[in-house]
Nucleic acid binder design. Structure first.
Lengths: 338, 338
DNA sequence: ATTGTAAATGTAAGCGCTTGCCATATCCCC
DNA sequence: GGGGATATGGCAAGCGCTTACATTTACAAT
């Protein structure tokens, strides 16, 4: 498209300003070490030459990139959007940049992307959940890459984390459901294999179910990837059972939205004929009809705290941090007393 | 957290394998230039040392990063998710990596992120829409960075683009709406300032409106950022007017979802009392109730074609590419004949 | 054997920046 | 005005890799 038309470098700026490259570098990075006069002169030439520092060269020489990497399971739905947004805002505020990849819920891909981000010189990493191959953690430890795990919490774990107790939260919701008279619960869970959050949420329902004296065999469960369409499909299957459930508890709001949509198509009145619950409290939750009873997760807070913790780890080499945030049950119209 | 425990470099591998760094580099990048025996030996040491190439060093020495950058206005909703996903898939297939930033619909931020990505050594860029400061295009041209603009199309423009005609598409939908008997249309548009897609969509409605002999003064318009909540709020305002609209045409599906939700809260029956239309055909569109009449955009195709075009630009230094994709009107229950 | 050619490998010069260390300027006080 | 403390600025050595060019090796043909 173009014959690369010389791109200005530090050297060019130095020559043009009549100083050494060291001085230009200082003007860019440690202004206080430079006299006001020199600074002004240098900045002016930087401006006039349209100079932009080469990031790779900088990262290489400084052995730090002020970049942190995040790998989330998916960008296709809003689950992680708000939290990540807050994470990024806090990062920018502290002078860091964010690099995001999505692993499509595939551990192999995630491992690969971790290496990729590390190879790119990420100073730290944000990962979702804790369930991954031990080799990955070893790799991270060997390279000395500070890492924070979010969206889950592992009391007693050796890893830094910022999250909440998925299991306890879902159990709380299930308790509520049973309290409201429901005795025929069906579950649409995310795929639990390789996804600790999904697994824990499911376990939370099971905890409650058993604690109330019911048998696990009487708790129908469908596992399916977190997509709105899958919620719809799973619902269709569940209501074909001999014993119709009175409530569908979903692994997250996206599945629940699919359920509500399909239920209406099939002529069910939610919540009169059947109740539905979700998890996450994404924005959509209060805009579906009927509004979704769900577990409210403090996404923005989680993002902010994760950013602060990670920076702490990077800059002060703190041993470890662990924050468990509180969640709450958001009662809305989709869940009704039976 | 750790005393950085020596990270293996190319040199380490070379020494351990008893060859030169050049040979190791060749084993990693141009296998065919190396004898099978050497290759095997080197790869083995790479493996045993757990060596990962340093990306920054590589990009610097090779003057190319096999990375391409994309800046989208927002990650908070699903508008760009599917297209970007397809874009990335095609990129990976061709051996490129993707770096994504979001500009929050702020031109200043976008300009900054463009510089950031270029500084990081991006070989090419994907940008959304065409409306941006001329200085940005000049910068890109000066650095010789191949760039593809997507989600919009500019016949006759000098820039490479892959998109569709927002204006014509929306006009088509508006024609349909008017054909169905609607004479009192209200519009909830995205913020048109700095957003050519939003501006063109709005213009499309206005085109149709005037072509049918109506006066622009009789077309109420609210501009608001693309958020579900904002659609709800805007709707509330619009129905307070003396002359109630019979249809609300929204700048995208997210706004429309907010409208549908709020309409129900206020006791309106959609579409009997009032019709609603969207734009984009995101997954949600067919899962709200009633299902949304909208403009179907071939997001995945757009992503794929954009990736191919960009790579073409980068590798073959083709002069320019421009693809205009077809969109279609997706008629669903939210729009009713009056 | 000798030579020619191509394939395989090595040598070393950067890529654009940061930073430890050293050399000046600058300034203040006596 | 001299001595020393301190603020500035320069020098040059890398950071880990690629690659043009030089050198060596392998092998076939003479």
């Amino acid at each position: 498209m173009h014959e690369t038309p010389h791109i200005p470098t530090l050297d060019d700026v130095a020559k043009a300003a009549g100083v050494s490259t060291a001085t230009v570098s200082r003007c860019l990075n440690e202004k206080q070490k430079v006299s006001a006069k020199t600074l002004a002169k240098v900045m002016e030439t930087v401006e006039s030459l349209g100079y932009t520092p080469n990031f790779n060269a900088r990262a290489m020489a400084a052995k730090q990139s002020r970049t942190i990497g995040a790998i989330i399971p998916t960008m296709e739905n809003a689950i992680f959007a708000r939290g990540l947004q807050a994470f990024q805002e806090k990062l920018l505020e502290k002078g860091y940049n964010l690099l995001v990849s999505s692993s499509a819920y595939q551990p192999k891909l995630e491992a690969q992307q971790i290496r990729e981000l590390v190879a790119r010189g990420a100073d730290g990493l944000l990962l979702i959940g804790y369930e991954r191959d031990e080799a990955v953690y070893e790799y991270l430890a060997r390279r000395g890459i500070p890492t924070v795990l979010a969206w889950a919490s592992m009391p007693g774990s050796e890893h830094a984390s910022v999250g909440f107790d998925n299991r306890a939260a879902m159990r709380l919701l299930a308790d509520k459901v049973i309290e409201m008279g429901h005795r025929r619960i069906a579950v649409i869970s995310g795929i639990v294999d390789g996804n600790d959050r999904a697994a824990e949420r499911l376990a939370g329902i099971q905890d409650s179910w058993q604690a109330h004296g019911f048998h696990l065999n009487d708790l129908p469960i469908i596992q399916t990837p977190y997509e709105i369409e899958n919620g719809a499909t799973a619902f269709e299957q569940l209501v074909q059972a001999d014993v119709k459930p009175t409530v569908i508890m979903c692994g997250n709001d996206v599945l629940a939205a699919g359920v509500i949509s399909k239920a209406r198509d099939l002529g069910f009145n939610v919540p009169n004929d059947i109740s539905v619950t979700g998890f996450d409290d994404i924005e959509l939750a209060k805009h579906v009809f009927p509004a979704l009873t769900t577990v409210h997760v403090p996404h923005r807070q989680m993002g902010r705290v994760a950013a602060e913790s990670l920076i702490e780890l990077i800059e002060h080499r703190v041993k470890k941090v662990s924050h468990q945030l509180d969640v709450s049950i958001e009662m809305r119209a989709s869940l009704q007393r039976i």
